[in-house]
Every structure is written in structure tokens, then in C-alpha cells.
Design a protein around this nucleic acid. Structure first.
Length: 612
RNA sequence: GGGGUCGUAGUUCAGUUUGGUUAGAACGUCUGCCUGUCACGCAGAAGGCCGCGAGUUCGAGUCUCGUCGACCCCGCCA
């Protein structure tokens, strides 16, 4: 067989339903697809036939075709799978349908063949569906026929191709790591798979290929990647599924700058080849501390401003107790100026206050400058000089409003971060760029957790400490300071750890890893994992590090989230072919489900309450 | 684990505030008519365990409790 001029031609069809135009006039074609619509005018009968590529109108004219063909055409209903043969012809003058790319032609039918009937579908296959999520998930195969979802999965496909193209061009090797591995109780809850050969023992499904990719570095692959499935048995959200895909990458002999350069180029290639968008790089880089101070959140949306302004200096000597007490206790008084917001209603301000309170604030102060003067919850407690100082520091003009939060640093950050996000929603039309990438780096290695009374890894237990901070690791063991003291040595250690943020969404996380067994053991010890447990859980990694493990690092961009951003999807479900509900069920195949008793017996598993 | 919203024809919803004859609409389905429609049109018909289970009441779609399911959020999770 020679080269095909039409790659879509098969034994069933000559063309797709999105392919024909006026230049094909008079050629004999055969199309296959689903009945998208039917309009029986008594004599003439129109059928819209749909496949992955488009919709084409077919006309059955009783003057042109026999009674048996008309009879067959009359029983066609939504979603019947049919094959039509006929001749392409331009539509009569003024009859073109401009909303359809094939709308200026139609097929004058000669024959129609019903390949398969359809029962009445529970919802119509059209982009503007009113069907509920539940119904759509149960009949996912019908939902996926909608161009709305089909297009997103096609974007996803293009994105995988772009990623593979780019990484291949930079010498990466794609390697599959196991789906069945040992459970590591750190981090998220594992999905567990019972072993039949070894009753009472279990595999775990990977939360990420983290340990394997590090071992691949020890194995000398130097540049590895994988579009890796990762599974977590945790509660779900609109942006969280039990299984997700990440572009898992790891490299040897690299610095943070090397990794950033590769990821920036990869993103640029990805967005250019899939969407045609030009991405400017290098991306902006901010430290964790700075990003928190300026935006109140470690994944800020930089498409708009609304930066946090510190009012500590202006209010240093204020007699207003709420502010002065906070400052005395090493807290902060900070605000966000919302230009043009002086006209916000009492109710709108109350709503914002409610949102901020949920994040832990005790209240939300505001100062609005209007033509008439000042409308404010706190101005009466402030001196003229202080008020003027605030105007000067913040550049508060008439017509603007300033929101102020006074609290300990972290709480103030959280509250203002949420407030900023909320206010930002109204600025959609004024966004500076379509895509705002940001590197956030210099994260603390550890984070003190009040509930467990212990330090926890802020990101990842394998992230390496800054070289200049590494003696803090040792001194922490002897420190007199209480662990919740922000000056505790362990709290001061910064990590070679970075996140990539896009439009306020964390799309990647990575780090330079520990390649020295002793350091790794110390970090595990801080986390409360003694040598014995470490050996049991991570012994294979610790051992591997002893054989000349190269310095290495990597990153794992979340593929679903990136595709969701590229396709402007509210829910991750829209970019996953067969997603789970928030209760981690698949409504289509009905999983999870019971298994046969003999399967359980083979595994040596008895279900509580099922005993005979 | 906690909070919120929702659950009524095949579908999307109204009806629930204030319990009271035969539970409505639209789309879809079915029947008939209709030769340029593309949300075709016109006439008619069928279609309901009001999620499920208890309770209150003379009487429950409507009130109470429980339960199941979907979605959103917190906790959890990177």
C-alpha cells in the first residue's frame, strides 16, 4: 500500500464528518458517525452526522432515493451509528450554516446503513449540556462524545507529545517505574494491594516514583522522565483526583538553575506547540519569605497586582490598641489597597470579612477614601498623622479602599492571601498576561506542626538543606529552644526546594535531593524516624546512596493541572478520560466494588462483619 | 472525620416557606401531518415508589429523625 492522501480513509468511510468543503463538490463520499440531529420535513429529511472531526449535513430527497432508503432514514434517532453514501454538493443559495465549518456543503444521500441503533440517550450530546455531573459520569462514553470534553483530551494528547519531544531533544530517557511497590507510611495514605503469594503482606501503589527516580540516578541514567501515574488514598477536591499524572523528571550533576532552564524551555515548547502561545522566560523567581510577605500565599496569581503593604512603620507608635498590641507581640499590621473599591457596599465588605475570618483573622479593618471624606472601621482610632502616613505609604487615592489585617505573621499572610485572591477575581479583564509563571524557592526544610508537636517535612523528605544551613541540622539536636520557637535551628534551615506556580496554581514541585546517606538519616531523625525504622522503610534508598550516588535533583510538573489550565477547565475531571467522584468512586464501572469470596480467600482476607 | 448545597417524569427544573382534591413546565420519547431544515414547524399521547427508611399527623413531595448518593469547602493531601 502506498502513501495515503487521506489518512482518515477506511473500509467504511472515505472522509470524516469535518473534512469536506465546496472543493469536494460532486465527489462520491461515504461518511460514518452518529446521528447528531434529524429534521423530517415530510418529504425532505435532514440528518446531521457527527464524528470526532465534525458534523456534516446529509439530505434525503424522495425524488433522488428509493422508498426503502427513505424508510430507513425516517427511523434514525439520536446517537444511531450510521454509514451514509452520497454526493457532495454546495448548499442552495442562502442556505449555508455559518456556525458549522462544513456548513456550506451537504451530502445528497444515496444510501444509508444503520451500523448500530442507540437506545434513547439520557442526555443530548451537545456542548451546552444541562445534564448533572452524576449522570455525565455514569454515561461517560456519551459525555466524551461532546466536543467540549473531546477537545480537552485532544489538547492533553498534544501536550504529551510536546513534552516527550522536548525532553527527548534534551537527552532524557523515559523509563517506567513499578506500580506495585513497598508502602512508605510518610506523606499521603497509600492505596494498598494485597499479595496472594505472601498472605498478610501488601504492595502499595506509588504516590510518586520519587525513590525510584533517585535510584535511577544512582544507576547512571542521569536524565530520566516519565509521564507517571501517581495515586493517593486521600479525600478529593475539584482539583484533586485519587490518581493523577505528573511529568516526573530527575537529573544528575545539576544545580537549581539547570533545572529551571530545562523546565522553562519545556513549558515554552509546550505552550507554543499546543496553544501557539509565546511564553517569556526566564520566569520570575521569589523566595518563599518574599512571596508570603508580598502575596500572603506560596502560590500567588501574578496576573494582577494587589500586593500586600506593610504598615508596621507608619503605625509604630499608634495608640490604637488592636494595632499596637499586635506589633508589640512581633505580629504584623498589613494591608491591601483595592483601587476603586471605596464604593463597596457594607454587605460586600461584610462578605470579605467573613472570608478573612474563616482563615483565622479576628477582623478586617478598612479605610475607604471618598469624595466626602473617609469611611472606615478604624480611622477614628488613628491620629491625623497616622492616617496621612497610611495614605502616603499605600498611595491610597480618593475612590480606593484599604483593607488591614493585624495578626501574627503567618495568620496575617493567610488572611491577606485569601483576601487578595478574592479581590483578584474581579480583575479578570485587567490581567497583565495570559500566563504568569513564577518560581518560588528557598522554602524552609521543616515546618513545626502544633498537632503532632514535631517537625514535618515542608515538602519532601528527600530535599537537601542549603549547604550553609547544614550545621543547623546538627545543632538542632542540642538546641535549648522549644521546637515551636521560630528561631529553633531546624526552623531556620532552608531547603533546595522549589515550586513552579502558574496563574495561582502550583503546577510543579521539585528539589535538589540529598545524595549523602548520613544527611538523609539525620533528616529522617528530625522527622521522628529513627535509624531502625529508616532502614526498614527506606533502606533500599539509603543503601543505594552509599554507592557513589551522584548529586541529583528533579521536579514533577502536575500534568493534569497544566492541561486543565491550558483548556480553562474548572475541574480536573474535565481533562481526565475516566475520573472519580469526590467520594473516589467511578460511577461508570461502579468501582470500588465487592470481589468474589474466593478471591478474598486466596488473599487470606476476611471482611469485618462478613464472617459466617 | 466535620460543615454547606442538592436529590420530584428519560433529562433539566417548578411545587416544600404556610401539610389538604387528579404533582406541573420545558426538552426528550411515541403517533399523525408537513419538500430547504439546521433549537424545523403543527396537532395529539404516553411517561412519577416526589432517592431510600422510620416517625409526627385524620392526611406528608411538603414537617422531624436517620440513611444513601452527587457537588463544594475545612481537616487531610503536594
Amino acid at each position: 500500500m502506498g502513501k495515503r492522501d487521506n489518512i482518515y480513509k477506511t473500509g467504511f468511510r472515505s472522509h470524516t464528518c469535518g473534512q469536506l468543503s465546496k472543493s469536494d463538490t460532486d465527489i462520491e463520499v461515504s461518511l460514518c458517525g452518529w446521528v447528531h440531529g434529524y429534521r423530517n420535513l415530510g418529504g425532505l429529511l435532514f440528518i446531521d452526522i457527527r464524528d470526532r472531526w465534525g458534523i456534516t449535513q446529509v439530505v434525503f430527497d424522495p425524488n433522488d432515493v428509493g422508498d426503502d432508503c427513505m424508510e430507513k432514514a425516517r427511523i434514525l434517532r439520536y446517537e444511531f451509528s450510521i454509514r451514509v453514501t452520497g454526493k457532495v454538493r454546495p448548499r442552495p443559495e442562502g442556505m449555508a450554516n455559518k456556525s458549522n465549518p462544513t456548513g456550506d456543503i451537504e451530502i445528497a444521500a444515496q444510501t444509508v446503513e444503520i451500523l448500530n441503533k442507540s437506545v434513547t440517550p439520557p442526555f443530548l450530546v451537545e456542548d451546552e449540556t444541562t445534564a448533572s455531573d452524576e449522570l455525565r459520569l455514569k454515561y461517560r462514553y456519551l459525555d466524551l462524545r461532546r466536543p467540549f470534553l473531546k477537545n480537552k483530551l485532544e489538547v492533553r494528547h498534544k501536550a504529551t507529545i510536546a513534552v516527550r519531544e522536548y525532553l527527548n531533544s534534551r537527552g532524557f530517557v523515559e523509563i517506567e517505574t513499578p506500580l506495585l511497590m513497598r508502602s512508605t507510611p510518610e506523606g499521603a495514605r497509600d492505596y494498598i494491594v494485597p499479595s496472594r503469594e505472601h498472605k498478610g503482606k501488601f504492595y502499595a501503589l506509588p504516590q510518586s516514583p520519587q525513590l525510584f527516580k533517585q535510584i535511577l540516578m544512582v544507576s547512571g541514567f542521569d536524565r530520566y522522565f516519565q509521564l507517571a501515574r501517581c495515586l493517593r488514598d486521600e479525600d478529593l477536591r475539584a482539583d484533586r483526583q485519587p490518581e493523577h499524572t505528573q511529568i516526573d523528571m530527575e537529573m544528575s550533576y545539576v544545580t537549581v538553575d539547570d533545572i529551571f532552564e530545562i523546565v522553562e524551555n519545556m513549558m515554552s515548547h509546550l505552550f507554543k506547540s499546543v496553544l501557539g502561545d509565546d511564553i517569556a522566560f526566564p520566569f520570575e523567581r521569589l523566595s518563599y519569605r518574599e512571596v508570603m510577605d508580598r502575596y500572603g500565599i506560596d502560590k500567588p496569581d501574578l496576573r494582577f497586582g494587589l500586593e500586600i503593604i506593610d504598615l508596621g512603620d507608619v503605625l509604630a507608635t499608634t495608640e490604637f490598641r488592636i494595632f499596637s498590641e499586635t506589633l508589640k507581640k512581633c505580629g504584623v499590621v498589613r494591608g491591601i489597597k483595592y483601587p476603586g473599591g471605596a464604593g463597596l457596599s457594607r454587605k460586600q465588605i461584610d462578605n470579605l470579612t467573613e472570608i478573612v475570618k474563616e482563615a483565622g483573622a479576628k477582623g478586617l479593618a478598612y479605610i475607604a477614601r471618598t469624595e466626602e471624606g473617609v469611611r472606615s472601621s478604624v480611622a477614628k482610632n488613628l491620629s491625623k498623622a497616622e492616617l496621612n502616613g497610611i495614605y502616603e505609604t499605600t498611595g491610597l487615592e480618593i475612590g480606593d479602599i484599604l483593607f488591614i489585617v493585624a495578626d501574627e505573621w503567618k495568620t496575617a499572610c493567610d488572611c491577606l492571601g485569601i483576601l487578595r485572591k478574592e479581590l483578584g477575581k474581579s480583575l479578570r479583564d485587567e490581567f497583565k498576561t495570559k500566563w504568569a509563571f513564577l518560581w518560588v524557592e528557598d522554602f524552609p526544610l521543616f515546618e513545626y506542626k502544633k498537632d503532632t508537636g514535631r517537625f514535618d517535612a515542608m515538602h519532601n523528605i528527600v530535599s537537601s538543606p542549603f549547604k550553609k544551613d547544614s550545621e543547623l541540622l546538627d545543632s538542632g539536636f542540642e538546641s535549648e529552644l522549644k521546637p515551636d520557637d521560630p528561631n529553633h535551628p531546624w526552623a531556620r534551615i532552608r531547603a533546595n526546594q522549589y515550586d513552579l506556580v502558574l496563574n495561582g496554581v502550583e503546577i510543579a514541585s521539585g528539589g535538589i535531593r540529598i545524595h549523602d546517606r548520613a544527611v538523609q538519616e539525620k533528616v529522617l531523625k528530625v522527622l521522628g524516624i529513627d535509624a531502625q525504622r529508616a532502614e526498614k522503610m527506606f533502606g533500599f534508598l539509603l543503601n543505594a546512596l552509599e554507592y557513589g550516588a551522584p548529586p541529583h535533583g528533579g521536579i514533577a510538573p502536575g500534568f493534569d493541572r497544566i492541561v486543565a489550565l491550558m483548556t480553562d477547565s474548572d475541574s480536573l475531571r474535565d481533562v481526565i478520560a475516566f475520573p472519580k467522584t469526590t467520594a473516589a468512586q467511578s460511577l461508570m464501572d461502579g468501582s470500588p466494588a465487592e470481589v468474589d469470596q474466593n478471591q478474598l480467600t486466596e488473599l487470606g482476607i476476611r471482611i469485618e462483619g462478613n464472617e459466617e
